[in-house]
Design a protein around this nucleic acid. Structure first.
Lengths: 217, 217
DNA sequence: GCCGAACCGTAACGTACGGTACGGCAGGTC
DNA sequence: GACCTGCCGTACCGTACGTTACGGTTCGGC
């Protein structure tokens, strides 16, 4: 499915200065897309190209490090399934939906996904795998326990958590991500995101909510 | 939202030879991604670079022409809403879902979307708009009349056809397109696509199907 | 048979950019 | 103070590729 992504704690062995350089690269990536040049990064970060090459090997290495650096910043707290009732489950799902929509509509995510998609064609690096691992798959990893807890509490009914998750993913994201990636100006206000999160959660519960209430009541 | 895409009938003024050249470019695009060079296209199409530049202006022009050429080939027959009952509506929806999944999982679509996404960052051309217009928006244009007909026949209930369509889109596509674009190897067999189409249609009808049957029965 | 247009193949040009080399400077160590 | 290390700034090299130029060939029209 996916070639393995090395699970290196990537904040490890990154000095403050190196993080600053990666932040500069990230800003440049957002501004210029894959057009960024090593010279531009060096200038923006006030460092020499020699240093860039010493630290990151080559252009792909810099790109990969940048993507991983950003990924390491968006780790979100998990939700625990303690004391789950319908209200808290609903709130959790809405929270996940809203967070996810905010992420995929952010300039940073769009830029990163664009670069990764572009690189996925010519398999030099595995940027696509990195993005996928820290995006879609990370989301699944955090959401599935909640779904399982919901099922265990008798609030949800589904055979396969993966399938249920993918439906939730589709209900939340719909055409948003592909439209944004393709350059469609899709203004997602805070309010619109909130509304979409509620709608998606509603629809998900309509499809997977236990028909007879929790514990068969 | 989208900058206007010229609605030129793009098969117009394309000689047989030019179409052959664009086909060559398309094959190369699928094989090499955005890495294709003018030299490679000329060699593959057995034509001179001078001719490429005369016909298409520059590299971006060639890319745009290629994308439009492919787009003009995938026009699918519409479905009419005559004599609609639940069975035929279901069949239509499943058909749309299945066709769409086949499209987005095809090598050609993946390659085209990758290129368009890559170009959407630096707004030189409007490849993204072309792809959107012939993909997601064309699908909406063909599906909405069916949804409206379904509502008119009392089979569906929804306030806004656009919203209903986007939900259907999400239920069908889920995470498939982004995963494929990011390089995830997602084997979509004919059978899997058929199953997904049925599932998505089922879920859509569960959400938007009229609760009391057609005509209020 | 001759002309011009269209086109092929290829050589040539200019530039952008990845990658390398090197001189200079600051700060730490002995 | 001598020296080393790490880094900045910049000049430089090689190459890939978009774009142009040009000689040679085919072909329809007269």
């Amino acid at each position: 499915m996916l070639q393995g992504v090395p699970d290196i704690e990537n904040s490890e062995a990154l000095t403050e200065r190196q993080q600053a350089v990666l932040d500069a690269a990230l800003r440049l990536l957002v501004e210029e897309g894959d057009h960024l040049t090593m010279t531009a990064v060096a200038r923006r970060a006030s460092c020499s190209k020699e240093t860039l090459y010493k630290w990151f090997g080559d252009r792909d290495g810099l790109l990969t490090a940048t993507v991983q650096w950003q990924a390491s910043k968006v780790r979100v707290a998990s939700v625990d399934g303690k004391g789950l009732d319908l209200a808290s489950l609903t709130a959790s799902l809405e929270r996940f939906a809203s967070d996810w929509l905010k992420v995929i509509s952010s300039d940073t995510s769009i830029a990163l996904n664009r670069v990764a998609v572009g690189h996925a064609g010519s398999g030099k690096d595995n940027l696509g795998a990195v993005v996928l691992e820290n995006g879609r798959f990370a989301l699944a990893k955090r959401l599935k326990p909640v779904l399982e807890a919901g099922r265990h509490a008798g609030l949800l009914e589904f055979a396969d958590a993966e399938t249920a998750f993918r439906t939730f993913f589709g209900l939340v994201g719909r055409d948003v991500q592909i439209r944004l990636l393709l350059g469609d100006r899709l203004e997602l206000t805070e309010a619109a995101i909130g509304g979409d999160a509620i709608r998606a959660t509603h629809q998900f519960l309509a499809l997977f909510g236990a028909k007879n209430g929790p514990q068969g009541f």
